[in-house]
Every structure is written in structure tokens, then in C-alpha cells.
Amino acid sequence: PDLGLTQLFADPNLIENLKKNPKTSEMMKDPQLVAKLIGYKQNPQAIGQDLFTDPRLMTIMATLMGVDL
């Protein structure tokens, strides 16, 4: 199971919303991170391994779920 990750990354406004959010806007200036996020739309399971190697993803996930870290 993808634990709902498919829906989190399926939002067509995902990148724009993250660019507008004060907690994630600075991160979204990294083209490699943006490319990763776009890739998760097609393969949400890929985030599982990346969560352990890129701490920014935890902040992004929390933001998408509405959790304040």
C-alpha cells in the first residue's frame, strides 16, 4: 500500500502550492528536489527510500498533510 501518498502527490498544483508555502518555498528553488517531487506523481513508492536520505521530504510531507512540525 502507498499509505495515501498517491493522493498527496497527485495534486496538479503540488509544486506551485509548495512554492507559495513559507515552510517549503526555499526548498522549491532546488531543481533536483522539484524533479523528485514530479517523479513521485508517477511512482509514489519511490519516496519511501528518499525519506531516509533527504530530510526536506519529511517537511514537505508534513506540509502536504497539514501537520505543523
Rank of each mutant, 00 (worst) to 15 (best):
P1D: 10
P1W: 02
P1E: 11
D2K: 12
D2H: 14
L3R: 09
L3P: 11
L3G: 15
G4M: 15
G4N: 15
L5W: 14
L5M: 12
L5G: 05
T6G: 14
T6P: 10
Q7H: 13
Q7R: 09
L8A: 08
L8S: 04
F9S: 02
F9H: 02
A10L: 13
A10Q: 14
A10P: 02
D11G: 04
P12G: 05
P12Q: 07
P12S: 06
P12T: 06
P12C: 04
N13M: 10
N13Q: 12
N13A: 11
N13Y: 11
L14A: 05
L14K: 01
L14Y: 07
L14G: 02
L14E: 01
L14F: 08
L14H: 02
I15K: 00
I15F: 06
I15L: 09
E16L: 10
N17F: 15
N17Q: 09
N17T: 14
L18E: 00
L18I: 03
L18G: 00
K19E: 08
K19I: 11
K19N: 06
K20E: 07
K20D: 07
K20A: 13
K20P: 00
N21H: 14
P22N: 06
P22H: 06
P22T: 04
K23C: 07
T24E: 00
T24Y: 03
T24C: 04
S25C: 08
S25G: 06
S25V: 07
S25Q: 10
E26D: 08
M27F: 14
M27Q: 02
M27V: 05
M28K: 00
M28H: 00
M28V: 04
K29Y: 04
K29I: 03
K29P: 00
K29A: 07
D30L: 01
D30A: 01
D30S: 03
D30P: 00
D30G: 00
D30W: 01
P31M: 08
P31V: 08
Q32D: 14
Q32E: 13
Q32F: 13
L33P: 00
L33I: 06
L33W: 04
V34Y: 04
V34Q: 05
A35H: 07
A35T: 09
A35L: 13
A35D: 11
K36D: 03
K36Y: 05
L37G: 00
L37S: 00
L37P: 00
L37F: 03
L37Y: 00
L37I: 12
I38F: 06
I38L: 15
I38Q: 13
G39P: 01
G39C: 10
G39N: 14
Y40R: 01
Y40H: 02
Y40D: 01
K41T: 14
K41F: 11
K41S: 15
K41N: 12
Q42N: 15
Q42L: 11
Q42E: 14
N43F: 10
N43Y: 08
N43C: 07
P44H: 07
P44S: 05
P44I: 10
Q45L: 13
Q45H: 13
Q45K: 10
Q45C: 10
A46K: 12
A46T: 13
A46H: 09
A46W: 11
A46M: 13
I47K: 03
G48E: 15
G48T: 15
G48D: 10
Q49T: 13
Q49Y: 12
Q49W: 10
Q49E: 14
Q49V: 14
Q49M: 12
D50R: 03
D50C: 05
D50N: 05
D50A: 06
D50F: 04
D50I: 04
L51F: 11
L51H: 04
F52I: 13
F52G: 09
F52K: 14
F52A: 13
F52Y: 12
T53M: 10
T53F: 11
T53C: 07
D54Q: 01
D54L: 01
D54I: 01
D54K: 01
P55R: 09
P55V: 10
P55W: 12
R56Q: 07
R56H: 04
R56C: 03
R56Y: 04
L57E: 01
L57H: 01
L57I: 11
L57S: 01
M58E: 06
M58F: 14
T59Y: 15
T59L: 15
T59R: 08
I60T: 01
I60G: 00
M61V: 15
M61R: 03
A62H: 08
A62Q: 12
T63K: 03
T63F: 15
T63A: 15
L64G: 02
L64I: 10
L64N: 01
L64R: 01
M65I: 09
M65H: 06
G66H: 09
G66V: 07
G66A: 07
G66K: 10
G66Q: 09
V67C: 09
V67E: 13
V67K: 11
V67Q: 13
V67R: 08
D68I: 02
D68Q: 03
D68A: 02
L69E: 15
L69G: 14
L69S: 14
L69D: 15
L69F: 06
